[in-house]
Design a binder for these strands. Structure first.
Lengths: 205, 205
DNA sequence: GTCTATACACTGATAGAC
DNA sequence: GTCTATCAGTGTATAGAC
């Protein structure tokens, strides 16, 4: 049916989509959802207006696509640690390792920024917050691990929900502050994140 | 000259300005700089289009005004702690107290959110980033205190700049996550913030 | 000839400004 | 209330592979 070979077509499709995605990531990260214009995304991608709209039906759908990719990166980073063998505390340490390794790479930083923007402006983008909450379910796996690690004395005592929030807040906060500071990014260690959960009464659990 | 008494006039001016500021704070916090419209701010303030433009020359100037107020709240919170008497570590503990007490009140939360938005979208608002950096100089007073507290063994060892960043990141991160969670806000204690700086080898410095 | 990628002028709506 | 600029989104047309 297809005049061009199917493979070639798919190649072109995914090439173009990847170009648009990359350009949109950069533009949205810099200007925010409302501040970014399709014009900017077209210029950044080097593609025409018609083509961009050929692949994505709307600005909103492009943003949703980026949010989905951000969630996927995050979920993979978490899942790989939380599904690893070992005690609850070992899993938490593994998670800190993964975060330190992945969250501050150039691409991940931009995706994290997309999530921050989604959080702060989500109310003005219909359906976005619901979409995010639905796909953030993997976060819920951490609090039970904290509770388990509290029982073994490795995690700090106190409200597990607050400890959990502190952990996530610290990661997001770092992303925000290190956007343009590559030198400091290199100094991020897993220990920084684990520290907010660790029980100081029992050093080095 | 003035048909109305001078005092009355000034009263009206500050009333109107306060109304606009309050409305703008809420609208910008919810929709972001670009997502917010002057229409929304006018409706939220209950004032006419003409009056709003009488008090502020542009949308941009309103946002700058909010950023300045946010910086002022932050500076006061920090200064009051860092200028207090006592050791370096005591000042840090006082700072955590102030932050826990002030940063999560309804008004401060919104101002913090304005700062987050300014950070993430600042590049698309001319002059904003420079403006913010100029007025964030008070942040620079914390790292020396950390270094001093490291010498006395109260602060954790390690790169003071990273510890400083972790402290600030944690505060900002909490603000971001607790926007719509008043129940959890109540549970925030100074200890959560101090913990990221404390030396676990010497509990309770 | 047919299908798909691509280009771009245009439209309608709405925002900021005054 | 009005003016003007600009945005998201569309309609139509061309190019080229098969």
């Amino acid at each position: 049916m297809s005049p061009r070979g199917k493979k070639l077509n798919e190649q072109m499709r995914s090439d173009a989509k990847a170009k648009i995605t990359k350009a949109a990531l950069e533009v949205f990260a810099e200007y925010g959802y409302h501040g970014a214009t399709m014009e900017q995304i077209m210029k950044a991608s080097g593609l025409s207006k018609g083509l961009v709209y050929h692949y994505f039906p709307s600005k909103e759908k492009i943003f949703f696509h980026l949010v989905d990719k951000a969630l996927e990166i995050s979920r993979n980073t978490w899942k790989e640690a939380l599904d690893s063998p070992g005690t609850a505390w070992e899993k938490i340490e593994k998670l800190s390792e993964n975060v330190a390794k992945i969250a501050f790479t150039d691409e991940s930083s931009l995706y994290s920024l997309i999530m921050v923007q989604a959080t702060t402006q989500g109310k003005s983008i219909p359906g976005l917050m619901e979409h995010i909450f639905q796909h953030l379910a993997f976060y819920n796996e951490l609090p039970p691990l904290i509770i388990e690690a509290q029982k073994s004395g490795e995690a700090a005592p106190g409200d597990p929900q607050i400890l959990f929030l502190a952990y996530v807040a610290l990661i997001q906060g770092f992303v925000l502050f290190l956007l343009n500071d590559d030198e400091t990014k290199k100094k991020i260690t897993p220990e920084i994140f684990t520290k907010v959960l660790r029980n100081p009464g029992k050093p080095n659990g």
